[in-house]
Design a protein around this nucleic acid. Sequence first.
RNA 1: GGCGACGUAGCCAAGUGGUAAGGCGGAGGUCUGCAAAACCUCUAUGCAGCGGUUCAAAUCCGCUCGUCGCCUCCA
Length: 483
Amino acid sequence: MKIYNTITREKEEFVPLNSPHVLYYNCGPTVYDYFHIGNARNFVVADTIRRYLEYRGFKVRFIQNLTDIDDKIIKKAKEEGITAKEVAEKYTAVYFEQTGKLGIRTADMHPKATENIPQMHALIKTLIEKGHAYVVDGDVYFSVRSFPSYGSLSGKNIEDLQEGARVDVDERKKDPLDFALWKAAKPGEPAWESPWGPGRPGWHIECSAMSIAHLGESIDIHSGATDLIFPHHENERAQSEAATGKPFVKYWLHNGFLNINNQKMSKSLGNFFTINQVLERYDPLSVKFFLLSAHYRHPLDYTEENMATAQSASRRILNALETVDKLIKINAVQENSTGLSAPEFAREKWVNFRRVFEDAMDDDFNTAKALSVLHDIVSEIHETRKAVSNAPQDAALLDALKLYRNLLLELLGILGLDPTLASGKVDFNDKIIGELMQILIDIRKLARAKKDFIIADEIRNRLNNISITLEDHPQGTIWKHKK
RNA sequence: GGCGACGUAGCCAAGUGGUAAGGCGGAGGUCUGCAAAACCUCUAUGCAGCGGUUCAAAUCCGCUCGUCGCCUCCA
């Protein structure tokens, strides 16, 4: 399996520090607002990578932090006249509610910055003792000059950065690039006691402290979006390695942006759609199809057309699944059939689909290509379906259908594309509804047999009005709920 | 100004040396009482442009043009 590593700028063979264990940290949200679809891309990508690593047999310990204290939270609290803590609690709940809708699994742990203050103090203390940090008026700064390889993650050097010259001019800092590990409290701001006076943590120190505390001094994967490479991850790396003397992260992964009109979606530009706005228009499955339709490192444009495309594409796969399910039922295939009696050619194709899928995902998580395999399976399902029509008695062909259906479901699951994410509110697997539908279908069948198409069409039209579609197949009539 | 990424059909998007995956959309056809769904066929002699290397280039090299990103909080 190959993974693109930001720090080496090339795809590398993935070899965990202590295989099969994988320690994985994803930079989580700052909980001050609804997250936008661009944030969602990061969460979905990390979740997908986690799932695939597990599928590949790795024992993944996956941690994603919650930044529950920072400038934006304090600002929001002032605007709304509530405490910073209340803001954080509100949007933490929103985070779990919305990611739940998207079928994003919760991490093994979601550490909060405010619950890891002692760990940050310890880290800062070590940095001061080792001469990598210094105290000024209750602030503590990290000295970038004290860490020789500063800049190697982002491919920058200190001199170039200073020529860029847009860094805050603060006379108290030894170097303009030095960044705050601990910020002295200003009046009215939330504050925690510390050896340097009351204050709150700098942004970068949180992730270092929580990663070290909950995963260890050296981990396998640390991920985030590309705008975190500098300064966030650069600073994390510097302070962590300066403190522990050990490599902080083996593989740095960064996902590309979600764009609007070819421009980065961002809160500051105001060109963003929050996740709840998007979910009002599109079902979670379509949203995930869209987010996985391009390689994770490439930019992806959020447009109505692209969303509609993703929706149609996901429908194609759902339709095939539903059709094959109903056909299997009509033909009374053994529920516990293993697919082993499927014809040789079908089993060969099955193996091949899986191989191509794995090759795609093994190549730096190429979900766009992996999705094309799902479509290929759908095509194969339809072809097999046709063969079943021509030879309804051939149980082996039905078994092949089942084989493909199961594979499709499994691969969808690995990508986090559970078909139930697309469903509406009504539980259409409800037994009574199924029986009622069967009654209607049987009555319509009688009408059609008598060529009474007025009644037959009335039934179909009325059902269509409540979003239920009837399809007459050679093997019988099936019904579907359309969204 | 420094560093980096990208430019493949109407749209989206794989493909990093061997002769252009897949999806969406569109056109025609098959099936059907009619539909729906599905299937079949067609939809890039071409990969921003110009040079170069090679038996062979979307893929490697150089230049040009264009777009975007990071350098400041940002997923």
